[in-house]
Amino acid sequence: MRYTFFLACLSSATIILPLTVAFIRAKSVFQNQRLLSFYLMNHFISEVITISMALNKMRNLETMLFFSFIEGILVILLYKSVIEEISIKRFLTILLPFYILGFLGVYVFLDFKLFIPSFTYPFHQVVMLVPLLLFFADRMKRMNEIFLSENPMFWITCGFLFYYSGSIFYFALHDTLFIDYPAISKNGWLIHSTMLVVMNLFLAMGIFKIKKA
């Protein structure tokens, strides 16, 4: 248990990396800077609070869910502002209330009575993949404008994509692992932590690519 906790702390601490890069690049030109900052702050605060709760042996699953809900809204809003294609933008406008209602609905009707939320997280992870894939679809229509590797959002999207796709299975099997296979749960947590580190590295790279003012 101590090993898992140490791993969680370590992987969570990597959020400092994109935050530091964002701080250095504070005077940069990026249209979605505010949303991205909110996302990073939300991420950071959620890590600090949930780890503190865990340290005090308090149940933090609902708190994590709350921050994930905020994170989901921020991600959809971020991509809504980044994507240029009007039809895709409209789709994201519909996705936002769908996500809010879906998230609350799944939690209230399916997870509320469970000891460990088993449906809300996978729902969140799967919905998060939608704006990411839509971003790539939008970029494919504007391939000649900028090299993908020079686009900060490309790196940020890759980070999100690795994290959300890589941790779907872990969250889908979360309750089974936790209750029936506590020994294997450690391996699941290792996968999640690795994905988190990868995402933070990509986020840092993306923020680093934002041009200076």
Binding site: R139, M143, F147, L148, F162, G166, A172, L173, D180, N187
Partner: peptide, 27 residues
């Protein structure tokens, strides 16, 4: 459950890499 977890995660990660590679190749 471990092989399911590992295989599922790797399959999804592989798909993510495939999507990114496809977009880059297309560009």
């Amino acid at each position: 459950i471990l092989p399911v977890l590992i295989f599922g995660t790797f399959a999804l990660l592989f798909m993510a890499v495939a999507v990114i590679s496809f977009v880059m190749f297309y560009q």
